[in-house]
């Protein structure tokens, strides 16, 4: 059998068998395998994508919670600070007020003391005057004969008293 001339019988069988193989495999074989592999690939891609999204979301949630926590802590600090300030302020206010009141009371007291003192002084003055008049009367009555000496004495006394 010559190697280089195709044998018609074998050509026929090859045509038939390859045709059948091609038909069967192209209809029931390869397309379904390739299709399923492609579908699986798409499915894997989808799964990876959703996993990535889930991780991202989780990270977002974590960040959010951290942020909220930090905010709360800040708020706490702020409130504490504010309270502290308020406390100091209230105390200071109270102190100021007390100071003012005390000052007022002191002033009042000073004023009334001054008044009392003046009244007392006036009293004393009038009493001294009355006393000195009476003293003078007594001295006058006693030493009326020695008139110049009496006058000197009276003057001297008066001067002393007025001083």
């Amino acid at each position: 059998m010559s190697l280089l001339t195709p044998d018609p019988g074998l050509l026929f069988w090859m045509l038939v068998s390859f045709g059948i193989v091609f038909f069967v495999l192209a209809k029931y074989g390869f397309p379904i395998i390739v299709k399923m592999v492609d579908e699986r690939k798409a499915y894997i891609d989808r799964s990876l994508e959703s996993a990535r999204q889930a991780t991202e979301r989780l990270q977002g949630i974590q960040e959010e919670s951290e942020r909220i926590l930090a905010e709360a802590r800040e708020e706490q600090v702020r409130i504490l600070k504010e309270t502290n300030e308020m406390r100091v302020k209230i105390i200071n206010d109270a102190k100021d007020l007390a100071h003012l009141e005390t000052g007022k009371i002191m002033e009042e007291a000073k004023r009334s003391i001054q008044k009392e003192k003046e009244t007392a002084m006036r009293d004393i003055h009038s009493q001294i005057a009355a006393l000195s008049i009476s003293i003078a009367e007594k001295i006058l009555r006693k030493n009326l004969d020695n008139k110049p000496a009496q006058l000197d004495l009276a003057n001297k006394l008066l001067q002393e008293i007025s001083n």
Binding site: F18, V21, F22, L25, A26, G29, F30, P31, V34
Partner: peptide, 10 residues
């Protein structure tokens, strides 16, 4: 694809 795969496997 079906034809070329058939050829390869054949």
């Amino acid at each position: 694809t079906p034809y070329l795969l058939t050829v390869f496997f054949f």
